[in-house]
Amino acid sequence: MKRRTVIAAATGTALAATLLTVAGAQANEQAPAPAAAPDISVENVQQHLKELDAVAQANGGNRAHGEPGYKASIDYVKGKLDEAGFETSVQEFDKGGATGYNLIAEWPGGSADDVLMAGAHLDSVSDGAGINDNASGSAGLLEVALAVAAGDLQPSKHLRFAWWGAEELGLVGSNHYVSSLDDAELGKIGGYLNFDMIGSPNPGYFVYNEDPELEKVFTDWFAQKQIETEPATETDGRSDHASFQDAGVKVGGLFTGAGETMTEEQAGKWNGTAGEAFDKCYHSACDGTDNINADALDANSDAIAHAIWELSS
């Protein structure tokens, strides 16, 4: 009887091991590695810039808060997202006696308790069309959102995109949105990514360094493309990520520089022009479609897609 017991135990052990192996293989088959992000067409992003420039030219030359060009910009982006299958909503707020608008776009699915959010401000200053600042971030984010829909991405986290109003007047739109959330809803946002000026004509490659995990997703991607990066220290408190950071949400993002001057060292590693501003048309009337570096716009748009795919899986 002892011999039979030993044989039975050994047989049972072998069977259990086999079942575990089969179960593991089935689990691997059911949970494949996340697909890589698609290459984002810079031509498509540039077309959005042309459309937003046309909106500005048809509405007094700008897309500023309280002006018809801003509402027309909201309508353009919303139309693209609605057509792609997003659930969109427009949040209104008041600033200076004028109605402002935030556009929020939800991609159906993913855990409602674990939200990855990405945003860009859509308004310009009153002096111009604001194509680099910040049609560039808005257009890059829009094209990534459309790629999410085209690829029918099924992330484990819930994806939420946003286009903010009245950033140029002091982060008004994003502050309004964050303050509209109760603690429970705010706590569901695991990370917020911000994209403000991603096509500067004399570009730097700056990555927000407020959160190491979110920073690494971007720096690793740029390193694989052999593009050196620097921490985006000059963005501290200057764009919409600050609204989220102040509320305790982890933040990250990208930036190619504003009115600050590029140094000799930076020019050497980015093949830029030392002694000139990253964006010579910052907050000026000349911030039009010619005020864009297509290579920077392309690289940053692809980096946005990589982060969305990587962080939402």
Results as ranks from 00 to 15, higher is better:
19 L>K: 01
90 V>I: 12
120 A>Y: 05
43 E>Q: 15
22 V>D: 08
129 A>H: 00
104 I>H: 00
79 G>P: 10
105 A>T: 01
74 I>E: 07
74 I>W: 02
55 V>T: 13
53 D>R: 09
72 A>N: 12
97 G>F: 08
89 S>L: 02
99 T>D: 01
118 A>R: 00
80 K>E: 15
71 K>I: 14
119 G>D: 01
18 T>I: 15
23 A>I: 14
106 E>W: 04
73 S>L: 08
112 A>S: 14
38 P>R: 02
120 A>R: 03
55 V>Q: 02
41 S>T: 13
132 N>T: 02
43 E>Y: 11
105 A>E: 00
50 K>S: 09
56 A>V: 03
122 L>E: 06
63 R>E: 04
63 R>L: 07
116 L>S: 13
124 S>G: 04
121 H>W: 10
37 A>D: 10
86 F>A: 00
121 H>M: 11
84 A>G: 07
117 M>V: 10
61 G>H: 06
90 V>L: 05
41 S>Y: 12
48 H>G: 04
79 G>L: 11
56 A>P: 01
81 L>W: 04
57 Q>C: 01
108 P>W: 09
98 A>L: 04
10 A>G: 08
57 Q>D: 08
61 G>N: 05
84 A>C: 04
50 K>E: 07
34 P>E: 14
129 A>I: 01
21 T>Q: 11
134 N>R: 01
92 E>A: 10
31 A>C: 07
103 L>E: 07
89 S>G: 04
121 H>Q: 11
20 L>S: 13
27 A>H: 15
46 Q>R: 14
26 Q>P: 08
120 A>C: 10
127 D>N: 06
65 H>W: 13
101 Y>K: 06
45 V>N: 09
27 A>R: 15
56 A>K: 06
17 A>Y: 00
122 L>D: 04
58 A>M: 03
56 A>H: 05
98 A>T: 02
91 Q>I: 08
55 V>R: 03
48 H>P: 05
65 H>V: 07
96 G>Q: 02
44 N>R: 15
99 T>Y: 01
18 T>S: 14
16 A>R: 00
109 G>Q: 10
90 V>Q: 06
60 G>N: 06
63 R>A: 07
31 A>L: 13
42 V>W: 13
66 G>L: 13
92 E>Q: 12
98 A>F: 09
75 D>T: 09
22 V>L: 15
85 G>L: 06
117 M>L: 15
16 A>E: 00
44 N>S: 14
70 Y>I: 05
127 D>K: 06
71 K>Y: 11
32 P>T: 12
45 V>F: 10
74 I>C: 06
130 G>T: 04
59 N>P: 03
127 D>C: 01
51 E>M: 11
81 L>E: 09
93 F>D: 02
13 T>Q: 03
58 A>D: 11
56 A>F: 05
122 L>R: 07
20 L>H: 10
126 S>N: 03
48 H>F: 04
44 N>L: 12
10 A>N: 02
76 Y>M: 10
30 Q>S: 14
32 P>S: 10
55 V>G: 03
87 E>F: 00
95 K>Q: 07
14 A>W: 06
59 N>T: 02
20 L>R: 11
100 G>T: 03
103 L>S: 08
28 N>S: 15
29 E>T: 15
